[in-house]
Design a protein around this nucleic acid. Sequence first.
DNA 1: CTGAAAGCGCTTACAG
DNA 2: CTGAAAGCGCTTACAG
Lengths: 340, 340
Amino acid sequence: MRKASVTIKEIARQLNVSKSTVSRALRDSSEISGETKQKVIDLAKSLHYAPNPIALSLLKNRTQTIGVIVPDIANRFYSSAIGGVEDIAYSRGYHTMIYQSHESLERELAASRHISLRRVDGLVVAISSQSENIDHFIELQEQGIPVVLFDRVIDTLQTHKVRVDDYKGAFEATEHLIAQGCRRIAHIAGPKTVSITRNRVDGYKEALRKHDIPFREEWVLHTEITQEGGTERTYQLMALRDRPDAIFGASDRITMGIHWAIRQLGYKMPDEVAVIGFCDLGMSSLLDPPLSSITQPSFEMGQQATSLLLDLIESKNTPASYVTRVLPSNLVLQKSSVKA
Amino acid sequence: MRKASVTIKEIARQLNVSKSTVSRALRDSSEISGETKQKVIDLAKSLHYAPNPIALSLLKNRTQTIGVIVPDIANRFYSSAIGGVEDIAYSRGYHTMIYQSHESLERELAASRHISLRRVDGLVVAISSQSENIDHFIELQEQGIPVVLFDRVIDTLQTHKVRVDDYKGAFEATEHLIAQGCRRIAHIAGPKTVSITRNRVDGYKEALRKHDIPFREEWVLHTEITQEGGTERTYQLMALRDRPDAIFGASDRITMGIHWAIRQLGYKMPDEVAVIGFCDLGMSSLLDPPLSSITQPSFEMGQQATSLLLDLIESKNTPASYVTRVLPSNLVLQKSSVKA
DNA sequence: CTGAAAGCGCTTACAG
DNA sequence: CTGAAAGCGCTTACAG
């Protein structure tokens, strides 16, 4: 069915030279005469010759392809990070294969297996919240496939990491709420298994401590990273005898759920309940009132992770040490948390 | 520094048989003795042997991989459609490579080139709005790489197509606005180059005609598929001496822009201006007031397109004729268009 | 039932 | 400067 492509053999036949000569001419080897070189190149062009990357892969055991695993491409944070990955990969001659884990360890394993089988050259990954065990990534590394983590990092994997300064972002958001006069500040956090969650809870706590506001266990709730989770936990918080006067949400989805629930329940934002959360700006500005956000440099995170990965792939030996890049987040204040 | 994988040669060496025998035993050929077969299979298992898919690709000129090109993976409609693509591809033993065109012909060309070079087995695509010329897809077909269109289809390409019933969706949305008592109904449409746009405009016009409402040129504006586009065109509409009492938006992004602008401008929804649009439900329910939407079965569209594609890939000969599947859209009424 | 050989498309020591 | 040969990992007629 498939139309046969032009091969080096065909060019050799037409020119009455050997395949070796054609191959060398095309890679501009210095040991070929200018004349022959030109003949080969001209014919190759007119025949629309393109080398078969699969043959090269077999030869070099390299595919010029990197993989990226994210929990969910529909999430703007990740789709934007993928943009950054593709940007760097493309400019350095690599292609990108995108996998979604849907927060499931099983699907992360399937993707890892595929990456190993397909001889993908390296992997950029934001670990699924279900994955406490990361043996599959260690196995990839043992096979010589470098892995770089971003966003969701984990201590047990030795490698380059790129993450945002969650602690500081959470600290600043909480301190902002305090500056607005809030004293009863709740936090709806992500799954306990995720590193980010812990950092954000810590930042939140530290801001309270700094301003001598007592920490109250019942005002920190954990949930899956979904809008429904944010909504349900908001119901739970607002149902408390002692209800909060501010809620800080740990992610886009969660925070959108909070915003929605607060409106549903009939509270005025920000006066009765101030809301702020880690969120994508495009999203948060659409809401009414617009949502104060801690925004993350997602595109840059994808870029940096990929650039570190390609360095690993292209260097002969394992590096002396791994780096962890911590990028700043950015506080964008809007009406949901700024009192008149 | 990639660790060498176990090969058929290694198994043959350890068992003192030929590579051919190992190969046959592993594919369970009937011409190998049960005993030998068992030995080979056992050793293969204990060595964690996995066939090198790259070698197979070189041999068969097939990669068990399909490509999918969409304008933008961050758009929920497309990320959900990709979910449907992956669902079917995975269950039939194929992997999916995802490409984004960002509505640019140039990037669509780059993706097509990659698909051709990488010997991807087939392609599912929602054409970029910039691509009036689709020679690159015809070339793929000529190379024996089948292409199936979904969402954004185009008449000039002979192939299977899967789309939603835009005409009917637009017709119903418009008729609903009329039922609400609106008579000055505007439509903010997508780029003129896209087939969908024309169908939606036609559905809108037909509903007006049926109810004897005169069509007014100045109430149909075209824009890029962005939120900003929706916002700008809304400003333009509401600035008219004769302003509309309802706006029907042609896509998620556009409609979100309309909703935002109407609120900004201080109009009451739905009483002063009713708003409805093609939109994802998760999104539209978040807004205040919740947005009436024509929802599309994006996941199913991805599934059906992929299933048609795999049939093309796996059949020996080109089919007698191509099909166009038209899926129904669904009208979900919410507060933005339903008057008390 | 099993093996040697050719071949998928390419590169690269090794000869000359 | 050019070519013949071996090899990447696998399959499959062709012999036996």
